[in-house]
């Protein structure tokens, strides 16, 4: 069965867990996951889904935990031209933009 990240995020929220949702909003070049791909993160850093082939998940989870704390949504850019490239660059050379928001 294909997983439904939003369903899982909504279920976590219903249980009273703190949840943030990350969504791929733009892609350039050969990025690994299409627009609309989602990653749900809970307050403990447990996550489900994906926004890349695994290259940027660590950085996105960090931002998601921060969004859970502050409630401030954010738009993240990842790609080979990013100065963080060596740390969290996309191996395939594509670029992605990921929007991270808290489920209130």
């Amino acid at each position: 069965m294909s997983e439904d990240v939003l369903d899982q995020a909504a279920a976590w929220r219903k249980e009273g867990r703190k949840v943030a949702l990350a969504t791929v909003v733009t892609t350039w070049g050969s990025s690994p996951r299409p627009v609309g791909s989602q990653l749900a993160v809970d307050g403990e850093g447990k996550f489900l889904g994906s926004v890349s082939g695994g290259c940027i998940e660590g950085a996105v989870i960090k931002e998601a935990l921060d969004a859970i704390g502050t409630g401030r949504p954010r738009l993240l850019d990842f790609g080979v031209t990013n100065e963080q490239a060596w740390e969290v660059g996309l191996a395939c050379g594509g670029k992605v933009q990921v929007y991270v928001e808290r489920l209130d």
């Binding site: 369903d7 909504a10 808290r102 489920l103």
Partner: peptide, 28 residues
């Protein structure tokens, strides 16, 4: 995401009704 937005989205999806979510990426 506000609870009422998530609820409206989930309700439509459960009813298999076509639905989209528009988000202003600056204001949220």
């Amino acid at each position: 995401m506000k609870p009422e937005i998530l609820e409206a989205l989930q309700k439509a999806r459960a009813a298999k009704r076509p639905v989209a979510l528009a988000t202003n990426l600056k204001s949220g």
